[in-house]
Computed example of a mutant assay.
Amino acid sequence: MDVQAEKYKLIEWITSLEDISLIELLQSIQQKTALHSFRFSDEEKQKILQLLEKSEADIQNGKVFKHENVMNEFKEQYGIGK
């Protein structure tokens, strides 16, 4: 199977579509595929693990804020909800 040729056939077919629900379905497939194809480098994985460990330590040491308090501070700072 010539993958490039098949891709071009799909592109031609997609550009001729008029059914919005089918286009939305294809967009949904694209988004899900993009999420699954994302890969972290080894360096990125290590950094994420370090950040997770630090976050866990902060939680254990009580270095956390209540969501309500953060939202109230944000609203006050930006004059929201007055």
Rank of each mutant, 00 (worst) to 15 (best):
L51V: 12
Q46Y: 05
L52I: 00
E56Q: 08
K47P: 01
K47T: 00
A34N: 09
G62C: 12
Q60M: 05
N61H: 09
Q60F: 04
D58F: 03
Q50W: 02
K45S: 04
N61Y: 06
K45C: 02
E43H: 08
M71F: 14
E56W: 10
S55R: 13
K54D: 02
D58C: 04
S55C: 11
F65G: 04
K66C: 07
R39K: 12
H36Y: 14
N61I: 05
N69F: 06
K32G: 11
K54Q: 03
M71G: 11
R39D: 06
E44V: 00
Q31E: 15
A57G: 01
H67Y: 15
E43W: 13
L51R: 11
R39Q: 09
I48R: 02
G62N: 09
F65N: 08
E53L: 07
E68D: 12
L51I: 12
A34Q: 07
E43Q: 09
F40H: 09
D58K: 07
D42Y: 10
L35T: 08
V70Q: 15
Q60W: 01
Q46H: 06
F38A: 14
F40A: 07
E43V: 10
F38V: 15
V64N: 08
S55I: 09
M71C: 14
S55Q: 14
L35W: 11
F40S: 04
F65L: 12
N69E: 08
E43Y: 14
K47V: 02
T33K: 15
N69H: 13
K47I: 02
K45F: 02
K66Q: 08
K47F: 02
K47S: 02
K45H: 03
Q60P: 00
H36T: 06
L52F: 01
E44P: 04
D58A: 05
K47N: 00
T33L: 15
S41D: 01
Q50T: 01
V70I: 15
M71R: 15
I59R: 03
H67S: 15
F65D: 10
Q60I: 04
E53F: 03
R39Y: 05
V64K: 12
L49G: 01
Q60K: 08
Q60R: 07
I48P: 00
G62D: 10
E44I: 02
A34H: 08
L52V: 02
E68R: 10
E56T: 08
E68K: 11
L51Y: 13
E53W: 08
L51H: 09
Q46M: 04
Q46A: 07
Q50C: 05
H36Q: 12
G62Y: 08
S55P: 07
L35Y: 09
I48F: 01
I59A: 04
N61M: 07
E56D: 07
R39F: 05
L49C: 01
V64M: 11
E53T: 07
I48A: 02
Q50S: 03
F38T: 14
M71T: 15
T33G: 11
D42T: 08
A57V: 00
V70P: 11
Q31G: 13
V64E: 09
V70G: 11
L49Q: 05
I48C: 00
S55H: 11
Q31Y: 12
Q46I: 01
V64S: 12
K45V: 06
E43G: 04
V64L: 11
H67Q: 15
K54F: 02
D58E: 06
S37P: 09
V64D: 06
